[in-house]
Design a protein around this nucleic acid. Structure first.
Lengths: 246, 246
DNA sequence: TTTGAATTGTTAAAAATTTAACGTTAAATA
DNA sequence: TATTTAACGTTAAATTTTTAACAATTCAAA
């Protein structure tokens, strides 16, 4: 089992899932080798960044070929814990919580939803896929004992997000995914990720309103074909990708 | 009308929605002034960062008081285009697309969903709130003419995300929110934000697995109360917030 | 076998971002 | 009114992250 000696810098962790999905595709396409240049091109990075990142994972390429794709996939998969199953619970059986519980993608990537909870008595026992909505009182037992969930997904309104987070932490989850449009605070030792869907839309609105480039579609017709690669696009945490500075 | 002379650095844009939501809460709490120190504390930043950021928005505080909250809210609201209505369409009437269409938070923040589309004939005409699922053939007309949507939300499986993006761009949207677990390419002039829900979970799994802190909950009891502020927590794009380096 | 070219791994430079420092300003108080 | 002090605005330092550069290496082909 390889140990990543140094904790990875945040931007690297951010890029890992991108590498993983892309490398998977490459493998499915039957490719065997990929160079840092090609990978960088495909992902909108520089080859330098790719090499730096992969070297942090102790990946070694070979001159004139690049990196072995299966090996890359294995390393990325390992470090991200893909392959393992991660138990998670969802709090909030509204539209979003339900959608996530039913979303095939999560299960596909090894995130097993083993419980969905809500405080609304109306929803108690309602079927969500193979699960049933449970009361908040059972959260503790389910997270701590029954399915030992490491991850809690918060899909409640902003106003109750913090208290739900507290309950999840007390129940024993080690990481939270926050889908509510509010900041929540966690003690050290608990990891938190904000999904920021609404914030993303707001940032998008800012970028759209303040761009200085030309519209993508000319007034005379379709734009298909001017796509296909955007090498200069800077692809950073925050997720805004444009050729020009924002 | 104020003009932000310089385009804002990406990390600043990332923080703007955080400022906005927090400042709104403060105003609702009846506060009138907020200092950079308090704001930084509440948001897990340094006061220096806050002052730098706000100065980029041409906000001026006053000594011994801080920043006027209503003014702050106005500036943030303006720059993020809150207050304005942004028309958006959703492609993909699966769980996630439907959930977003029905999600109150979007409308609340001024994002008006004016169409939801799917290629599945089974879904045609199905009701989603006050909307009905439309065929992809009508996308062009709706986006371009009927509701002049600036934003396209991609809620389809990864395999068709790119082609949907192309259609949306051709139809004339200026920004995309990608909820699919895949990278999509856009031409210059179109803004792209990735929602990365699954990637976030993967990053969470990495952080959980590689943390070196103590578990949040001691074996002897509940942990409530060791929360409440986490000043050292570094809060960066990528969204992982922990006291220790990852 | 030698040459040539592509690609790595790594070092160092550059750029971006965050943080600290501190003189200046404005309010509160004596 | 003078003094004190909290807080700003800004300059500069520190840190982090990205990019460039290049010697070393490996394969392919002449």
């Amino acid at each position: 089992m390889f140990e990543i000696s140094q904790k990875l810098p945040r931007p690297v962790v951010y890029r890992l899932p991108q590498y993983l999905t892309h490398v998977r595709e490459l493998r499915q396409d039957g490719l065997e080798w990929i160079s840092s240049h090609k990978l960088a091109d495909d992902l909108g990075l520089t080859s330098s960044t790719v090499r730096q990142d992969l070297s942090k994972l102790h990946m070694h390429g070979v001159s004139k070929r690049g990196y072995r794709i299966v090996q890359l996939e294995k390393a990325l998969s390992d470090v991200l814990g893909a392959g393992r199953v991660h138990n998670a619970v969802i709090v909030g059986a509204g539209y979003l919580g339900t959608a996530l519980a039913l979303h095939g993608g999560l299960a596909e990537q090894g995130f097993k939803i083993c419980g969905i909870f809500d405080s609304d008595p109306e929803l108690m026992g309602a079927a969500v896929g193979s699960l049933r909505v449970q009361s908040m009182e059972t959260l503790d037992y389910v997270v701590g004992t029954k399915c030992k969930a490491e991850i809690g997904i918060i899909a409640v309104p902003a106003s109750s997000a913090q208290s739900v987070a507290d309950l999840l932490i007390d129940a024993g989850v080690r990481g939270l995914l926050n889908l509510a449009y509010t900041r929540i605070l966690v003690p050290p030792g608990v990891a938190l990720m904000d999904a920021r869907i609404i914030a993303n839309l707001q940032q998008l609105a800012y970028v759209i309103r303040n761009r200085n480039g030309k519209p993508a579609v000319s007034s005379t017709g379709k734009s298909s074909g001017n796509r296909k690669k955007h090498p200069a696009s800077n692809n950073l945490p925050g997720g805004i990708k444009r050729d020009i500075k924002i």
